[in-house]
Design a protein around this nucleic acid. Structure first.
Length: 572
RNA sequence: CGGAGUAUAGCGCAGCCUGGUAGCGCAUCUGCUUUGGGAGCAGAGGGUCGUAGGUUCGAAUCCUACUACUCCGACCA
């Protein structure tokens, strides 16, 4: 490609509304332009990269046995009513009516459409497993789009769906997808981790997210320092610090704590170690228990994990904190003086609380706490559960090493759906006995547009993007100086350009009538991995200047062997 | 959804408080010079000041409504 015939829409100034580096660089390098909140045009330079991501995904999925198809972006409401999600999905689902006043939505995902297709096409267990994917534009009306294409409303997603006669078959395809994702993200040169993820309300039996590690990520990932254990903090198991509490050494006593309404104040004013304090959180109860609210106890230095809390049978879903009035009605004290002693409601305690001894907690009397509380001696041990977020330094749940926590950008998610959609939508096949059975399903997503942003978060410097070759819009930039004035420079540049093109190298010839500084800055900003400078000076010396995008200094290639020497540098 | 803020040329901003008919930098166009790190000089073009209404002799400026966009929040005992 000649730069004079290609839109190079670089800008010097950083756009005011771009927060994260990838968003800033995608705008500055001329990859995207905003149309409206959460809606972006992909300019030619950005689309080249997007297509390279798609190509890698296609190659690996095709090799793993998935078949590509393409479904409509607009979907009829009937299918969503069948699955129950027309009511469940909420305002993120963009709904619209056609000229006949029939209801439709713009697809945020395609479980309903693929399930409808498969139930109509596949009738026998002999046709399973079936495994389809598409790369297609989705729309989710996000509460708050941000970070450019990282969280946009319209985005390109690879979504795959598989159908099986049993769990064993699903597990095999699930593993195939897992391995294909590993190959895809390896080829994309991303620093990523597959992590154990929440199954969400869908249930099912297994789920992994693939996270690119980056400070701007919106999820916390916990991973072991000495094994490959990694999990979303939402899911990471917090193991008990020890098997049982120590024997009591203190008497339980009622202490006046008029100014200690928070754990921090309690610790500061009463010389209590924070790990000897207990937080009592009150949430709405489910129908399972004979109470309006339930108490959840975590240690003062720990945080409640809302996902784990919501899974407790005593707790109403979605998790809702009790109001101050509700607490006062039942307990007769304010938040800030709550604790397990004499508490008239069901209690669930975290594992770390269960092995605490001589601890302090509210007395359920305003301005008073009990200190020196011990389970069994002072009150029965309530039901124990894993309720808290893991923290840095916690032991890894697999028993190997301790946990670190870093931010991650979710770029992929694989999910065992089980029978959720096939039962709701009556998607069955006949088994060996001629009996209709619902198909077991899996679904598998990659945020294609988000991958581009995530890659920039990991690969940039003060001069711009640093593309790995697998993602670069162009592999090589030819930068001639005085292309329009020097016949020698022009002849050599054109010759190199056609030779590299003939070898299949994706090359950009910067034949623009610009000063050298402009060309250098643009080639660096847009992140092209290899650069050759063609100048009269170099020609006279019999050399071409080469610089890799990550190199500190340029080096020289012999002129008579330049193409071969350059090609030997590619793919390293 | 709750809170805060912004809206003036393609981009980044000043002007608004204290009303008098719009300006700066970059970008664009023309000419000359320059040509290995986002050039210099000279000139030019480009704005219904987000939209609608109000106050006023007069509104970018004051008032009202609306719209769009941005940021913060939705872990607290």
């Amino acid at each position: 490609m000649r730069a004079s015939q290609f839109l190079i829409a670089t800008v010097k100034e950083t756009p005011a509304d771009a927060e994260v580096i990838s968003h800033q660089l995608m705008l500055r390098a001329g990859l995207i332009r905003k149309l409206a909140s959460g809606l972006y045009t992909w300019l030619p330079m950005g689309l080249k990269t997007l297509r390279k991501v798609e190509k890698i995904i296609r190659e690996e999925l095709d090799a793993s046995g998935a078949q590509e198809l393409l479904m409509p972006a607009i979907q009829p409401a009937e299918l969503w009513q069948e699955s129950g999600r027309w009511e469940q999905y909420g305002p993120e689902l963009l709904r619209l009516k056609d000229r006949h006043q029939r209801d439709f939505c713009v697809g945020p995902t395609h479980e309903e459409v693929i399930t409808d297709l498969v139930r109509n096409q596949l009738k026998s267990y002999k046709q399973l497993p079936a495994n389809f994917y598409q790369i297609q534009t989705k729309f989710r009306d996000e509460i708050r789009p941000r970070f450019g294409v990282m969280r946009s409303r319209e985005f390109v997603m690879k979504d795959g769906y598989s159908f099986h006669i049993n769990q064993e078959s699903l597990q095999k395809t699930y593993d195939d997808y897992f391995n294909a994702y590993v190959r895809i993200f390896d080829r994309l040169n991303l620093d990523y981790r597959p992590v154990i993820a929440d199954n969400g309300s869908i249930g099912g039996t297994g789920s992994h997210e693939f996270h690119v590690l980056a400070a701007s990520g919106e999820d916390d990932i916990a991973f072991s320092d000495s094994s490959d254990y990694a999990a979303n903090v939402e899911m990471a198991e917090a193991v008990a610090p020890k098997a049982a509490p120590d024997a009591p050494t203190e008497e339980m006593r009622l202490v006046d704590t008029p100014n200690a309404k928070t754990i921090a104040a309690l610790v500061e004013q009463h010389n209590l170690p924070i790990e000897k304090t207990i937080k009592t959180l009150m949430v709405k109860a489910s129908d399972e228990v004979d109470s309006d609210i339930v108490a959840l106890l975590v240690r003062g230095d720990h945080e409640l994990n809302e996902i784990k809390a919501e899974k407790q049978p005593e707790v109403a879903s979605p998790l809702t904190m009790a109001t101050e009035e509700e607490i006062r009605d039942i307990v007769g004290a304010s938040p800030g003086s709550l604790g397990p002693v004499n508490l008239p409601m069901p209690i669930v305690i975290d594992r770390a609380v269960a092995c605490s001894s001589d601890f302090g907690a509210g007395a359920n009397i305003d301005g008073k706490h009990y200190f020196g509380i011990n389970w069994e001696r002072d009150l029965p041990t309530p039901r124990v559960a894993d309720l808290r977020n893991v923290q840095v330094g916690d032991p890894s749940p697999d028993g190997k090493g301790t946990l670190n926590i870093r931010r991650g950008i979710e770029v992929g998610h694989i999910f065992q759906l089980g029978l959720k959609y096939s039962e709701a939508m009556n998607a069955t096949v006949l088994d060996e006995n001629g009996k209709a059975v619902p198909m077991t399903m899996g679904c598998y997503g990659i945020g294609v547009t988000r991958v581009v942003a995530a890659a920039i978060e990991q690969n940039h410097d003060e001069n711009g993007i640093i593309w790995p070759e697998s993602l670069a819009p162009f592999t090589v930039a030819l930068v001639p100086l005085n292309y329009d004035k020097s016949d020698d420079v022009k002849a050599l540049s054109d010759k190199l350009y056609s030779e590299l093109k003939a070898k299949g190298v994706d090359v950009l010839l910067d034949d623009r009538k610009e000063r050298p500084g402009v060309k250098f800055a643009d080639m660096e900003l847009t992140g092209i991995p290899h650069r050759l400078v063609i100048s009269d000076r170099g020609i006279a010396a019999g050399q071409l200047e080469y610089k890799g995008r990550r190199d500190a200094e340029a080096s020289d290639l012999p002129l008579d062997n330049a193409v071969a020497a350059l090609i030997s540098k590619l793919g390293q």
